[in-house]
C-alpha cells in the first residue's frame, strides 16, 4: 500500500511538472497574443475605451468574450450587430432606447468617450475567439451569428430596428413585427413616424431615433416595399 512519503512524492512531482508545463504554455500564449488579439489595433482610443469599460464596471451586467454578468447582452460583436448610431444612443440615454424595459445605467458620455467605447467594441470584434459566439444552429430561422445580415435589408435596419422589432422571425419582440408594414402604412405616415413616434401616437414607447434625413429616406423606401 501507498506510504505517506510516496504520497508526498506524488504530490510534489505532479505539482512541479504541471506548474512547469503551465508556465511554458503561458510563455507560448503571450508570443501568439499580439497577432491573435490584433494588438496593433489597440490605439490610445481603444485603450481609453477599455479604461471606461473598467471604471464603470460594464462587466457587472454585460459579458464581453463571454465574461461578466448575465443581466445584459453579450457585447463582443455589438459593433457589427447594432452599429455605431445605436451604441451612441445607448451610451447617452439607454432608457430612451428601451423605454420601460430592463434598465441600463444612464451615463451621458461625452462624444470623445462614446468614440473611445465604440473603438473598443470594434477592436473586441476583431479578436480571434476560436469560434465564440457560436452560430445558432437549432432552427432554420436562425440566421448568422447574432448579426443580422440577410434579406437585402439596409444595414441600418438590421442594426437599429431589429433591436426591438422582428422581420422574418429575426430580431426583438419589444415592438411589433414589421413584416408587411408597407401594406399597412404609407410612406408619408412612415416618415412622420420615424421623425417622432409620439407625435403620431401619444402613448407609443418607441424613441426618437438618432437618424439623419438620408437615413430616414432609406428606411422609408425599404419599409414601403414590405407589402406582405
Amino acid at each position: 500500500m501507498l506510504s505517506r512519503s510516496q504520497a508526498r512524492t506524488f504530490f510534489l512531482v505532479g505539482t512541479a511538472a504541471c506548474t512547469f508545463a503551465f508556465v511554458g504554455l503561458t510563455v507560448d500564449t503571450f508570443g501568439q497574443l499580439p497577432s491573435r488579439t490584433n494588438a496593433s489595433a489597440i490605439t490610445p482610443e481603444v485603450a481609453r475605451g477599455k479604461q471606461l469599460w473598467d471604471e464603470n464596471n460594464c462587466m457587472g451586467c454585460h459579458t464581453l468574450f463571454g465574461e461578466g454578468a448575465y443581466y445584459a447582452p453579450e457585447l463582443t460583436r455589438v459593433y457589427e450587430r447594432r452599429g455605431e448610431y445605436f451604441i451612441r444612443a445607448m451610451l447617452v440615454d439607454p432608457a430612451a432606447m428601451y423605454p420601460g424595459e430592463r434598465k441600463m445605467q444612464r451615463y451621458d458620455f461625452s462624444i470623445e468617450d462614446q468614440d473611445a467605447l465604440i473603438a473598443f467594441f470594434r477592436w473586441a470584434g476583431t479578436v480571434d475567439l476560436n469560434g465564440f459566439p457560436a452560430t445558432p444552429n437549432l432552427m432554420p430561422l436562425a440566421v448568422g451569428d447574432g448579426v443580422a445580415a440577410t434579406g437585402g435589408r439596409p444595414q441600418l435596419f438590421n442594426t437599429m430596428c431589429l433591436a426591438c422589432h422582428a422581420m422574418d422571425g429575426q430580431g426583438g419582440q419589444i415592438g411589433p413585427a414589421l413584416d408587411g408594414v408597407g401594406g399597412r402604412l404609407d410612406a408619408v405616415y412612415l416618415r412622420r413616424w420615424l421623425e417622432n413616434p409620439t407625435a403620431v401616437k401619444a402613448d407609443s414607447r418607441m424613441p426618437v431615433l438618432p437618424l439623419s434625413d438620408a437615413q430616414i429616406d432609406e428606411l422609408v423606401a425599404f419599409l414601403s416595399q414590405q407589402k406582405d
Partner: peptide, 9 residues
C-alpha cells in the same frame, strides 16, 4: 445560443 432568439426576449 441555439435558436438565435434576441437576448432580452
Amino acid at each position: 445560443r441555439r435558436v438565435g432568439m434576441d437576448f432580452i426576449t
